[in-house]
Simulated assay, not measured.
Amino acid sequence: MRDPVALLARAITGYARAHGCAFRIGYLSGRPWASATFEGERVELELDDVEPGAAWLSELPDAELTVREHHVADLVVRPLSDSSVRVEALLLRDL
């Protein structure tokens, strides 16, 4: 299985490029997550140098992102500054 953090970063990068936008990944991390019925990964990415008010960011939580062997169960975008945001996501492993 490939690294789910890197796979999500790649999916978000592709989504941004499809909308004509670019950014720099300043920080990324992941940690295992599990419930009684699911297992996966909690992922955090900090995106820097984003265009303030970029429409693609507000659409990102509802986007159909392709992350191999995972399903994006939850994704939240939190502003950190005028040009930085934190993306927090829960990736559930396909069983």
Rank of each mutant, 00 (worst) to 15 (best):
V72I: 04
G30V: 07
P52H: 07
L7S: 07
L65A: 06
L47S: 00
D48R: 15
S35V: 08
H71R: 14
S29V: 08
R68D: 13
L47A: 02
E69Q: 05
A55G: 06
L90P: 02
G26R: 11
P61H: 07
P4M: 08
L57K: 00
R78K: 08
L92A: 04
V87W: 01
R31V: 11
L7C: 00
V43E: 00
A54K: 03
S58W: 07
R78Y: 08
R2M: 14
V67F: 11
A34R: 14
C21M: 10
A11R: 04
I25D: 06
R24K: 15
R31G: 12
D74M: 05
R78P: 04
V77R: 08
V72M: 01
A22V: 06
Y15D: 07
S29Q: 10
D74G: 01
V67D: 13
M1T: 08
I25S: 05
T13R: 01
E44N: 09
H70N: 00
R24Y: 11
I12A: 02
L95T: 11
G20S: 10
G30Y: 02
F38K: 06
D82C: 04
C21E: 15
P79H: 03
A22R: 05
A73E: 13
P32N: 12
S35P: 02
G20C: 03
T37F: 08
A89P: 04
V77W: 12
V77I: 07
P32W: 10
F38C: 04
R93V: 02
R86G: 00
A9Q: 08
G20D: 11
E88K: 13
D94G: 02
D82Y: 09
G53H: 06
A55R: 07
L90R: 11
L90V: 06
V72P: 00
S81N: 07
E39H: 12
L80C: 05
S29T: 15
D48L: 13
G40T: 03
S83W: 09
G26W: 03
A16F: 09
A9N: 13
T13F: 10
S84F: 06
L57P: 01
V76W: 06
L75F: 06
R93E: 09
I12R: 04
F38L: 12
A6D: 14
G14R: 01
S35Y: 11
L7I: 02
R42I: 10
R68S: 15
P52T: 05
Y15N: 01
V77Y: 07
P4T: 02
R93P: 04
E69M: 01
V77F: 08
E64D: 15
H71Q: 04
P4A: 03
